[in-house]
Amino acid sequence: MFKSKPASAVDPATTDTLIGEGSVFEGNITSKASIRVEGTMQGDIHCDGDVVIGENGNAHSNISARHVVIAGEVHGEIQASGMLTITSKGRLEGNVSAANLVIEQGARFTGTSSMRETAEAPQAQPQAKSKASTESNAIHADA
């Protein structure tokens, strides 16, 4: 009666999971496609695609994903194999490991960052060309 797609057919660029505003999700979540959080998330997120924490989103989570965008509030560790972006309204309290890090003016980041090259990192960008690992301690950026 119901036919499901094989797991290999999931496109990590598509968002198939939404935790909507007013919703609370407690527990760990794993997804091959992208995830968007507009409500409250309490638990770890492991995603092969991208994770977006919307302006009304609040996550007490360790997040592992390809790209992560924080426009709301996150308390936890972030591992992005690609880019982590903290928008002007975003708040992050936790440590970061990412190939590329963008912190917009007005964003708040409290924690440490570690940047590294990956196969996904754009080679044309100056920060991707650097072979040195950059680490900083107790960063508090009110850019």
Rank of each mutant, 00 (worst) to 15 (best):
I35Q: 01
A80F: 00
E38N: 13
G27F: 01
S61A: 07
S34C: 04
G72A: 09
I19L: 06
Q42Y: 05
S61N: 02
V52A: 10
A99N: 01
G43M: 02
Q42W: 00
H67W: 12
V52Y: 05
V68Y: 02
N95H: 12
S64K: 15
G57L: 06
A98N: 02
G54V: 09
G22K: 06
G111R: 02
M115S: 09
H75M: 06
S114V: 07
E117H: 12
I103C: 15
T15N: 04
I19K: 00
T15F: 07
G94M: 11
I63Q: 13
N95W: 09
R36K: 14
Q105N: 11
V51W: 02
D48N: 14
T85M: 02
A80E: 03
F25A: 05
S34N: 04
F25T: 03
D44F: 03
M115R: 06
N58W: 11
S31V: 12
I78N: 00
G20W: 02
S23T: 03
M115N: 09
I19P: 01
A71T: 06
G22N: 07
L101F: 14
V52I: 15
T17Y: 01
E93M: 08
V69Y: 05
T112L: 11
A59Y: 09
N56A: 13
I29V: 14
C47I: 02
I19F: 00
I19S: 03
N95S: 15
G94K: 11
E55P: 10
H67V: 14
T110D: 06
T15G: 05
V37F: 07
F109R: 00
E55H: 12
I45H: 05
L18N: 12
